[in-house]
Lab assay of single mutants.
Amino acid sequence: MDALKSAGRALIRSPSLAKQSWGGGGRHRKLPENWTDTRETLLEGMLFSLKYLGMTLVEQPKGEELSAAAIKRIVATAKASGKKLQKVTLKVSPRGIILTDNLTNQLIENVSIYRISYCTADKMHDKVFAYIAQSQHNQSLECHAFLCTKRKMAQAVTLTVAQAFKVAFEFWQVSKEEKEKRDKASQEGGDVLGARQDCTPPLKSLVATGNLLDLEETAKAPLSTVSANTTNMDEVPRPQALSGSSVVWELDDGLDEAFSRLAQSRTNPQVLDTGLTAQDMHYAQCLSPVDWDKPDSSGTEQDDLFSF
């Protein structure tokens, strides 16, 4: 819950932080000083300027060897085509990944977070970031790969997607708890209302004896509580940590079903599988986004697919 609360507080303090972009060759504004600060901008989305290598189908939802083989196929196909790589912007948030063309600003792909089953910074092609997700059109699994400016960037994108998945799962947990509370309150309110109706004398007997209905007592009954809980029953509950912020979080049926399955089948359902080692994760978390744009010590960066 700490990640969720800190993310909400950060967004309320400075929503404009989320509009910064990394990996864009110096076009961005001043960047936060450390990885923790940038992680807090996830709610509205972190932007990464990358190059799209392509996509291939895979048979399993996750796995280092599986993704490595898929990336190898994608890279080989991209090299064989001889075409310049498409420059894209990857927007990562707890909602998922939005992929747009840098030149036309046209939407290429919009992947809900619950469809993503794996992401990684490839070991062999260490400047490549990739994720595996279920197609929104059918049940097939797709591996999408992107060329980053350097290994640090690939690791940073991988960690960002993993963190977005974690925050999304926490949102789901909060929403589920809130819905259970509202359902319980609604049920209790309905029981109270039913009890009051059972003990209320029939209207005919009131008229016969000349008694008047006590409207004041009726007004004191917990009807307002019942209506408050039943009027918006169809509205999706939102985490309290975000009250007053500009973010509107809505959970669709697909996300609810997917996270429910994860909660039942996995020990740590909030953790998205990645190909990063503990050492890689520690190294990337210690980086400032400013470091992502620094040239690798191995030599001059080449803006070309064939540089790796």
Results as ranks from 00 to 15, higher is better:
A195D: 03
R266N: 01
M124V: 09
T158K: 01
T100F: 08
V92Q: 10
L11A: 03
I71R: 07
P222G: 04
K51I: 11
A228G: 07
S297G: 05
A162E: 02
Q240D: 03
A284R: 11
V92S: 11
K79N: 15
R27A: 15
Q285W: 14
I97Q: 07
R196T: 07
A78M: 06
K62P: 07
K150H: 00
A219H: 07
V207E: 13
A263I: 07
E216V: 10
L42Y: 11
D191F: 08
V271M: 04
M153C: 07
K84Q: 09
A133R: 03
A80M: 03
T38H: 02
S205Q: 08
L17G: 03
A258R: 00
H28T: 11
T160N: 09
S112W: 14
L43S: 13
S6W: 10
T230S: 00
L147D: 03
T274M: 03
D183E: 12
D304V: 15
Q139D: 11
L4C: 04
S205R: 12
T225K: 10
P15G: 02
T89M: 06
S307F: 00
S260Q: 14
V174K: 00
L147N: 03
A241C: 00
Q155D: 13
Y114L: 00
P202I: 02
V271L: 15
K87M: 11
Y118M: 04
L242P: 14
T267H: 06
K184P: 15
R95H: 03
S246D: 02
F306E: 01
E250F: 03
R182M: 04
S245T: 00
A121K: 08
N211Y: 07
T218N: 08
D126S: 02
T200P: 10
T277P: 08
S93N: 11
K181E: 14
Q163G: 00
I74S: 09
A168D: 01
E142F: 07
S307P: 08
S224M: 03
L215E: 06
T36W: 08
V247Q: 03
Q264V: 00
L215T: 14
L159R: 13
I116H: 06
T41I: 09
E180A: 14
G254K: 01
V271F: 12
N229Y: 09
V290C: 06
A185K: 11
L99H: 10
T41L: 15
V161T: 08
W172Y: 01
E301F: 11
G244N: 02
Q60K: 14
H137C: 14
S6F: 11
L141N: 15
M153Q: 01
M233C: 08
V248M: 07
P32G: 11
S49P: 06
R261H: 07
Y131P: 04
E257L: 02
A284S: 04
A156P: 00
R151L: 01
E33V: 10
T230Y: 07
I97F: 04
K87G: 10
V128G: 14
E65V: 09
Q187P: 07
F306W: 01
I12E: 11
L53D: 06
R115E: 12
L4H: 02
S112D: 03
L50E: 05
